[in-house]
Simulated assay, not measured.
Amino acid sequence: MVISTMAIIITFVISTVVMIIAFLVSKKTITDREKNTPFECGFDPKGSARLPFSLRFFLIALIFLIFDVEITLLLPLASILKMVNVFSWLFTGLFFILILLLGLYHEWNQGALDWAE
Rank of each mutant, 00 (worst) to 15 (best):
M1F: 12
M1V: 10
V2D: 12
I3F: 13
T11S: 11
F12P: 00
V13Y: 11
V13H: 09
V13L: 15
V13C: 14
I20V: 09
A22P: 00
F23S: 10
S26A: 01
K27P: 04
D32S: 15
D32V: 12
R33P: 01
R33V: 00
E34V: 07
N36E: 05
P38N: 06
F39H: 04
E40V: 09
C41P: 04
C41W: 10
G42S: 01
D44F: 06
P45G: 07
P45E: 11
G47K: 10
G47S: 11
G47F: 01
S48C: 06
A49Y: 07
A49C: 08
A49I: 06
R50K: 12
R50G: 09
S54I: 03
F58R: 01
L59Y: 06
A61S: 10
A61T: 08
I63P: 00
F64L: 06
F67P: 00
V69F: 05
I71L: 01
L73K: 03
L74A: 09
L75N: 02
P76F: 02
P76Q: 10
A78F: 02
I80R: 07
L81V: 11
L81Q: 11
L81W: 06
K82N: 15
M83C: 01
M83Q: 11
N85Q: 07
V86I: 15
F87S: 12
S88D: 14
W89P: 06
L90C: 14
L90F: 15
L90S: 15
F91K: 11
G93H: 05
G93A: 08
G93P: 07
F95L: 15
I99S: 07
L101D: 04
L102G: 05
L102V: 07
L102H: 01
Y105W: 14
H106V: 12
H106M: 12
E107T: 09
W108G: 08
W108Y: 14
G111P: 00
E117P: 06
